[in-house]
Amino acid sequence: MFGGGGGLNPRKMEQMMKQMGIDVEDVEAEEVIIRTAEYDLVFGDAEVTKMDARGQETYQIIGSPEQVEAGSAGGTADDAGSEAEAGVPDEDVDLVAQRADVSEDEAREALEANDGDLAAAIADLE
């Protein structure tokens, strides 16, 4: 469509997009979470680009997501107060339960009480 064998020069492409009223900007995202009813997709290393074409915003995510259990990928704006509870990884709970020789429920409670600090949770349980 555009001719030439080597593709378009990025600068020329940017000029053409501006002429068509399309603004492009990089978004400095630390993490992107896509929630579905069955699972969450967590992009920890995502490159996010926002395109605004005359008021219609489109986001492009480039990266490799990790598929996790639905709702286990951190809190939402509605439960920001329970961020520590939502943010305790199962691996941390397992580690504390093994080290302190307690149940997973006790380990989770200790981690929540210590804001996810593994050493403090283990010390409290010993």
Rank of each mutant, 00 (worst) to 15 (best):
A29K: 02
A29M: 10
A29N: 07
E30T: 10
E30Y: 12
E31G: 11
E31W: 12
E31H: 15
V32G: 05
V32I: 15
I33T: 05
I33Y: 04
I33P: 01
I33V: 15
I34A: 08
I34H: 10
I34W: 07
I34E: 08
R35D: 13
R35A: 15
R35I: 14
R35M: 15
T36A: 13
T36K: 13
A37G: 02
E38S: 10
E38Y: 11
Y39V: 10
Y39P: 04
Y39M: 12
D40C: 08
D40T: 01
L41Q: 03
L41R: 02
V42Y: 08
V42F: 06
V42E: 02
F43T: 04
F43P: 03
D45P: 03
D45I: 04
A46M: 09
A46P: 01
A46I: 06
A46C: 11
E47P: 04
V48R: 03
V48F: 08
V48H: 03
T49V: 07
T49L: 10
M51C: 01
D52C: 05
D52S: 14
D52E: 09
D52N: 13
A53Q: 09
A53M: 11
R54H: 09
G55V: 04
G55H: 05
G55F: 05
G55L: 11
G55R: 11
Q56E: 13
Q56Y: 07
Q56W: 06
E57I: 14
E57R: 13
E57H: 09
E57M: 12
E57S: 10
T58M: 15
T58P: 05
T58H: 13
Y59I: 14
Y59L: 15
Y59A: 08
Q60C: 01
Q60W: 00
Q60H: 00
I61M: 11
I61V: 12
I62Y: 13
I62N: 14
I62A: 14
G63T: 04
G63A: 05
G63E: 02
G63S: 09
G63H: 01
G63P: 03
S64R: 06
S64D: 06
S64Q: 09
S64K: 03
P65G: 02
P65F: 03
E66V: 00
E66L: 02
Q67K: 08
Q67E: 05
Q67P: 00
